[in-house]
Design a protein around this nucleic acid. Structure first.
Length: 552
RNA sequence: UGGGGCGUGGCCAAGUGGUUAAGGCAUCGGGUUUUGAUCCCGACAUUCGGAGGUUCGAAUCCUCCCGCCCCAGCCA
């Protein structure tokens, strides 16, 4: 679908209206991750939505780190997020922004609120505050500290800031409405004491602003016009607006919410992905089985495939679960068009020709539909490898069911000769060790001669001129469609067989020195890329298998 | 349960009172093919969570009911 015939979503309609009415002159959006983990496919959707909206309306999109909680954040996460956004191909407007750059301004606004008698320092502890807050059905009670004089709150806040008050002893709270049906409005915490260093501000601060007190004001400072977030923040919107209305902010942004991305057999929660890493269920954040941007990159998924997938998703208020097959479709779609073809035998079976003793070199195109991708040379010798699954001794197999090599019959070697299997050589244990076969003359690049009907086309590699490699095959990380639902932990549903390592695979020579950023199709197998974390040996990661429409 | 949000085929969805309810994914047939890939054709909701009502006409408006998600962190 092209941009023009794609239906406009509700946010595009709102922006269109705002532009038409003059409410907005230039659209400014923002992608505001907290640097407390690596970005995942769910963030990719948010990135595409925010940057995409800005681009389509000739506006701008900021990259802002919402680093208001030093406890969970680090520079490692900041760097990974920057790399991932860049890799996806988006350009943010101006410099990278940090909530921590606004800490002074935020503090000033907190003081303003105190003098307006709309904020106070509260000495209730966590348990007491929970008790006073009330429940979903009962109103809360006002804190005994709610009406303390502004000057007193102001002095106490200064002490909190100076590190003179122990953690947990005091908070700064907004004075709104303890009976509000919206629990977020029941005197929310604005500042809490955290006497720990921040990855950017060091030990300058002993108090840090809470999300609600920071986010809208950050948007206002940056001139964000449309602040787009996910559905779970809808209940925070009245509070977001309350701060914008009660503070002397430079602009008035509006918040809109859309449904976050869920994919079956996967997880899109930073917290849970961190748990997978911390508990060692996966190798790291960029484990190729992870739905992180870095994991997908290492797996061989292209940024364009991720963007195409995200663009295929609806920006709406429904919270559905997208089928993994939909993502896989876009991964294959992009790879099919852009990946060079090569051959690699995963489970080698030696084939020796009894009527051929030369060495030739064939030229094979790198892509069946794209000449611009060039070609490569394929050495052909008297011994080759084919895949074990491509040979059978069962002569009763129908041609329709088994389009591969059968004892006594013919098969086409991709880009090379038609051959016939003549004899099976077994080892002492009775396993097939080698096939003796014959090359059919003059069949390279030519139709099969009269009377010879190859059952199909199989891939191969010269046994004398190929390279050894290791291939990592992946299966879904979870064996349950919704690992998060039901009783128990999502970790109970981890697929123990999500990684299969194949050693002793044989790759064609052209694959020996490729870069991890190049993506290949190993014909008849799937799409692969070289692993970026192992450079001493040749290791390939399977991005995704080819579609398999035949029923065995 | 108070508040907020959402329910259209197996999945994601368009649809904003007026021809036979878009499209994508998946699935199932068939064709092409030196990849069982790609590509190409074809099939796939008498019905829009349910029940009433308004209307010449309803997925779209009204009423009631049912179901699912989010909010009771000094997380974001």
């Amino acid at each position: 679908m092209t941009d023009s015939d794609k239906p406009t979503n509700f946010i595009q309609q709102i922006i269109g209206d705002d532009l038409a009415s003059g409410k907005t002159s230039k659209v400014v959006t923002r992608f505001p991750p907290e640097p407390n983990g690596y970005l995942h496919i769910g963030h990719a959707k948010s990135i595409c939505v925010n940057f995409g909206l800005a681009e389509s309306f000739a506006g701008e999109c900021n990259l802002r780190f919402d680093d208001t909680n030093p406890e969970k954040e680090s520079d490692e996460y900041v760097q990974s997020i920057i790399e991932d956004v860049k890799w996806l191909g988006f350009n943010w407007s101006g410099d990278i922004r940090f909530a921590s750059d606004y800490f002074d301004q935020l503090y000033q606004w907190a003081c303003d609120l105190i003098y307006q008698n709309k904020a106070y320092v509260c000495e209730l502890n966590v348990e007491q505050m929970r008790e006073y807050r009330g429940t979903l059905t009962e109103a809360g009670r006002e804190s005994p500290y709610r009406y303390r004089p502004a000057a007193e709150s102001r002095a106490l806040l200064e002490q909190m800031k100076a590190g003179e008050i122990p953690e947990g002893a005091m908070t700064l709270r907004a004075k709104i409405d303890m009976a509000s049906p919206n629990i977020n409005m029941r005197d929310p915490v604005l500042y809490r004491i955290k006497r720990i260093a921040h990855h950017r501000t060091g030990d300058k601060w002993n108090i840090y602003p809470a999300y609600d007190f920071a986010h809208g004001q950050e948007d206002a400072i940056e001139g964000v016009t449309h602040s787009i977030c996910t559905l779970e923040f809808a209940a925070n919107r009245p509070l977001y607006n309350w701060f914008i209305e009660n503070l002397d902010v430079p602009s008035t942004p509006s918040q809109y919410e859309f449904g976050r991305l869920n994919i079956n057999y996967s997880i899109t929660s930073k917290r849970k992905l961190k748990q997978l890493v911390d508990e060692g269920h996966v190798e790291a954040w960029d484990d190729p089985r992870m739905p992180t941007i870095s994991g997908l990159r290492r797996r061989g998924v292209s940024p364009q495939a991720i963007r195409n997938f995200c663009d295929s998703l609806a920006v709406a208020k429904t919270d559905g679960v997208v089928d993994m097959a939909q993502f896989e479709h876009f991964i294959r779609d992009d790879l099919n068009i852009n990946a060079r073809r090569a051959m690699c035998v995963l489970k080698p079976l030696l084939v020796t020709f009894t009527n051929y003793d030369q060495s030739e070199q064939f030229t094979a195109s790198s892509h069946p539909q794209r000449d611009d991708l060039g070609s490569r040379e394929l050495p052909f010798d008297r011994q080759i490898y084919i895949d074990q699954s491509d040979f059978s001794e069962d002569t009763g197999l129908s041609r329709k069911k088994f389009k591969r090599l059968v004892l006594g019959e013919y098969v086409r070697l991709r880009g090379a000769y038609i051959i016939r299997a003549d004899e099976v050589i077994r080892d002492t244990t009775g396993d097939i060790q080698e096939i003796k076969a014959s090359v059919i003359e003059n069949t390279v690049g030519a139709d099969a001669p009269e009377g010879i009907r190859p059952r199909g086309v199989i891939h191969w590699v010269s046994a004398l001129n190929s390279v050894d490699c290791t291939v990592n095959l992946y299966d879904r990380l979870f064996n349950q469609a919704l690992p998060d639902s039901g009783e128990g932990s999502f970790t109970d549903h981890i697929n123990p067989n999500s990684l299969k390592v194949l050693k002793g695979c044989k790759a064609e020579l052209s694959l020996a020195n490729i870069q991890p950023t190049e993506r290949y199709q190993f014909e008849r197998e799937g799409y692969f890329c070289r692993d970026s974390k192992t450079d001493e040996s040749l290791v390939f990661n399977c991005t995704i298998g080819l579609r398999d429409n035949w029923k065995a």
